[in-house]
Amino acid sequence: MIIKVDHLTKYYKIHQKEPGFMGSLRSLVNRKYYDARAVEDVSFTIDEGELVGFIGPNGAGKTTTLKCLSGLLYPTSGNVEVLGFNPFERKHDFLKKISLVMGQKNQLWWDLPAMDSFLLNKEIYEVSDSSYKKTIGELIDLLDVKDIVNVQVRKLSLGQRMKCELIAALIHEPKVLFLDEPTIGLDVVMQQNLRDFVKEYNKKFDATIILTSHYMRDVEQLCKRIIMIDHGKVLYDGNLSEIVKKYATHKELRIVFQKPIEKRELARLGKITEMNGTRVVISVERTKSNHVAAEILKKYDIEDFNIEEAGIEEIIRDVFSNKNK
């Protein structure tokens, strides 16, 4: 087992001020604080080589958990163990084996080419010349950045910079990689490139990776297992495929009729989510889907017919919104 999180809780002390001038005056003499619950009683374990998606809405506690795992934050209570280390002690042996990549943060020197930042990391992480040469060559090839590593970082596009950030974070070949929104702000092509790279890195180095992302496509393509978190609590921890069985209450019937059908007539079969001429999408309860499908096929002239599971993104959105009701 590489990562063990046991009843992790993290509160932030937040200063609260009433609005207006009087509020400001009151706050001067009597500052009020409250404990904001970022993570509460979170427990999970992750094995070597696993690629786990950590998903949840904004403020769910994903980044806080990653920061506790990487040793940036001191937990309010509970235990965290990564590679047998207590992360918060930030021992150099521990830091040499992990990396945290935050999509919106920059660790490269702005006014120099990325190559100089790579060299600095090589020295800081005490990577040998031969190992550096081999790793940097592989990473540059994998991410296809040969032409830009000698260009001043400030002149690079966001996607190019993100690729260079990844290289800087991986020069020491970390065994555990925390990726916090690595595809944020990137165009779809660049997102796909990064996903391919993460998959390849996971396979090649047998690295353990935790990925947080708002893009469900990242998680769908990369992670077999997901941990869903909301309001600091784990809602689901298991296979991505299982979540469909567990939470998908409806199926979608996608039908193309030979001639237009009245909306009122179809509405009694289920919830019409899309209707465009003869093309109709009806959402029906899972248990009734076969029965409804048979009825449609029997009653109408059909040109095309499909029964589909609801999209992962939709299911997860439903899980979070039902939880919040």
């Binding site: 930030r90 990396s99 943060k105 992480y125």
Partner: peptide, 12 residues
């Protein structure tokens, strides 16, 4: 600007 996080994670 929050660059401290990156620096804290360096083994230096």
């Amino acid at each position: 600007n929050g660059e401290l996080s990156g620096r804290l994670l360096k083994p230096f």
